[in-house]
Design a protein around this nucleic acid. Structure first.
Lengths: 373, 373
DNA sequence: TTGTATGCGTTATCAC
DNA sequence: GTGATAACGCATACAA
């Protein structure tokens, strides 16, 4: 029912190869014949079948995205958007594999459902252990990490230096004279895998290190990351011997609503209490939250560009291998040159590990500490 | 390099057909041979190539998702998540086509890049005109609408009744004694297509209708949907002859930060001023915003289930056509019965148009109107 | 610049 | 329950 490339060829009185070229490499087809072909295609309502084309190339044109948190999360949704902004125009689909629970995770790495069915794997926002990485590498496709550790195992990685960034936040509070600081982290609820620390540990480490250097003993609060997170945070804050003069939140996700609620409860912010976040996510600027800026969309886009590069490099390699059996007269010199070039290099170009530039957003939620007791 | 189905067949000493069956229809293969095959496959690190399998079936196993706003939007990110939660397990990829500008949009409908390359098209959160719909239908795949109008053109659609929901919000304010209400809508910025009204018009219509019935003349404010939206809204509010006693926002996206800022600016909410939103999106509950609940994730999931149904139905139809040429002894009766069944029906089952159940979330941002002038 | 021939990996059909 | 084989639609190497 649907016209195929042969039908078009017939109608345009050319071979199917020419039709194929007319679409894939228009510059190799004479202007006139190309127009003929396009017209015939239009009349038959023809379009190249991506499934067939993709199959033909041996590539899958599919990128697997491993996600621990829901894809609708501020971070993940923006990472996805950034990835897609580069990958979609390049003809790639993104398939999300949610591995939020340890079960999911186990099953995934056991079965490796993407084996032979993805040209690259992108891991966003969670850590992987050595066994998992080994499994992943057994697929022989590039592994890309976005805010994922340990970076050495990735062919490309990009991340915010959470530790350092949180140190800066802490210093900011210390400089303002705060000596009584509450740090609030969000703990994954029940069924999540205990080994998924993403950036959380690095952030609290940074905070603790900076406090230690300043000889300060902060209050460390742990709040379950549920819809009741603000209530839990408030409860724990009020349960302290005395309210801190500053609360340092692991994420904007908590800081934004907490800020709002504290104000509502009569706390003068920042006069009585300073609040900091991390991410510069939705509403952070609008509610005036001092925080660290992350641009997950940009991280996704950069990761995607490197992903394409890594995929292309792999293809080149395999082509080299194939080409050794059949010289092609005219372009022989060039080919030989290229091959030599590649042989002179090591097998792979070394992996790149980027760190995003850290930018603090100083806003109205932080101010000098009120006079201490 | 990568093992294919033939390699496995060889190693397991069976035919490739049996290997294929062992994966696709395990029940048709003897227990023993199947185990053999699985083992051989494991040893060779074999996995069925989705590209090849998909190609073979003729389906694309790809769903096109047309998006007007960025995919990271609260609404879109959740719709996507809902769709993917159903489609991914069913073996479908989702490809997002952003058509945010009129250019994008024009190019898309002109070229129809998804022709022959999607098994269904899902349109989220924007309206389509008759020409566009005609183009879409020329692809002969189901068209699904999520919060998109006009619903008649879709094979399945699901939407919130924005008009009615906003009427309820308005009534709530009227009941509280508010007579001086400001309605704030977010207008798409510069380069967006002027014809994209999504739900906005329906909401303001509902508001206006209810006000008219109550013989009230509201202040209608239009704010550009940029990062400065709150500043613009505040400016316009303060520029009014007198502050309204209630502001009715078209979206939480504005209402949440506006609420926060108004409090910060010293407005007692709801004593001096009531604020309402629409969506029940991120932080709405945490800041205590009275709003209308929407569940885009659920809408996406429902839409996805119907999408699969629609695709399956199309497949059945074409199979029927094919099967007329070759009877198959044993199952002949059944087949005949089914075919008759289908012939008794009309070509298609009638489209379904669902309306989500509306639920208002009454919270602390609304209260009785302060004594009027 | 174009045509011919072939292969990509899987699945469905049919015979056994 | 299993094997042989023909598609599926396209892209490429090579010949012309």
């Amino acid at each position: 029912m649907q016209a195929n490339i042969g039908d078009v060829a017939q109608r345009a009185k050319v071979s199917s190869a020419t039709v194929s070229r007319a679409f894939k490499h228009p510059e190799l087809v004479a202007e006139a014949t190309r127009e003929h072909i396009i017209q015939a295609a239009d009349e038959l309502d023809f379009a190249v079948s991506r499934s067939a084309a993709v199959f033909q190339t041996g590539q899958t044109f599919r990128i697997a995205l491993l996600l621990n948190d829901p894809s609708s999360t501020w971070f993940n949704a923006h990472v996805y958007e950034g990835l897609d902004s580069v990958l979609h125009p390049a003809g790639y689909d993104i398939a999300i594999y949610p591995i939020g629970t340890s079960d999911d995770r186990h099953v995934f790495f056991e079965n490796l459902p993407i084996r032979r069915n993805a040209d690259a794997v992108v891991i966003a926002s969670f850590d992987v252990d050595s066994k998992e990485i080994e499994r992943l590498h057994s697929m022989n496709v590039p592994i890309i990490g976005i805010s994922a550790l340990p970076e050495e195992v990735f062919d490309y990685s990009i991340a915010t230096d959470d530790d350092y960034a949180m140190r800066l936040v802490t210093r900011h509070l210390l400089t303002l004279g705060h000596r009584d600081i509450g740090y609030i982290s969000l703990d994954p609820p029940e069924n999540a895998d205990g080994s998924l620390h993403y950036s959380a540990n690095r952030r609290s480490n940074g905070f603790l290190a900076e406090c230690a250097e300043a000889h300060i003993e902060p209050a460390m609060l742990h709040v379950p990351n549920t819809s009741q997170r603000v209530e839990h945070a408030l409860t724990q804050l009020f349960a302290l011997d005395h309210m801190p003069t500053a609360t340092c939140c692991e994420q904007d996700r908590l800081a934004v609503p907490l800020l709002s609620r504290l104000q509502r409860l009569g706390y003068a912010i920042p006069d009585a209490l300073s609040v900091t976040g991390f991410d510069d996510s939705t509403y952070a600027s609008e509610v005036g939250l001092t925080t660290v800026r992350q641009d997950p969309r940009d991280m996704g886009a950069r990761a995607a560009r490197h992903t394409l590069g890594l995929i292309a490099r792999i293809d080149d390699d395999s082509e080299d291998g194939a080409e050794r059996n059949n010289d092609r007269g005219e372009t022989n010199d060039e080919t030989a040159g290229e091959t030599n070039n590649k042989n002179n290099k090591t097998d792979k170009t070394p992996p790149i590990h980027e760190s995003t530039q850290i930018r603090m957003m100083f806003r109205l939620s932080t101010g000098p500490a009120p006079n201490a007791v």
